[in-house]
């Protein structure tokens, strides 16, 4: 996968039930930094983080700062919101 660079700050998703709010910021280096908050952190925190990291890898993102505020989102929603935020941050 070709490396893609995030250009600007962008967000996607909501704080409503079953959704996840994602905010991303560009990073020139330093890899991926996640700041994750979820009411089910103990049970599913690792799985949510795995889905976020896999989605970023699929999108070719190597350096990013990502804030995620989960409200009980399933994997498909996490993937969709991360993808939307990254697309927006890359200029659509």
């Amino acid at each position: 996968m070709k490396e893609v660079a995030v250009q600007t700050r962008a967000k996607a998703g909501t704080l409503e039930s079953n959704d996840i709010y994602i905010m991303v910021e560009p990073r020139e280096d330093g890899g991926i930094t996640l700041d994750l908050d979820s009411p089910v952190m103990r049970q599913f925190g690792r799985q949510i983080e795995k889905v976020i990291r896999q989605t970023l890898e699929d999108l070719g993102i190597k350096n990013i700062y990502l804030v995620a505020k989960d409200r009980g989102a399933l994997d498909y929603t996490i993937r969709a919101r991360v993808e939307t935020a990254v697309r927006r941050a890359c200029g659509g």
């Binding site: 994997d75 498909y76 969709a80 939307t84 697309r87 927006r88």
Partner: peptide, 14 residues
């Protein structure tokens, strides 16, 4: 744009 990506993911998942 967000709805489009969400619906595509739903169709691919469920």
């Amino acid at each position: 744009d967000a709805a489009r990506v969400l619906v595509r993911n739903a169709l691919q998942t469920f």
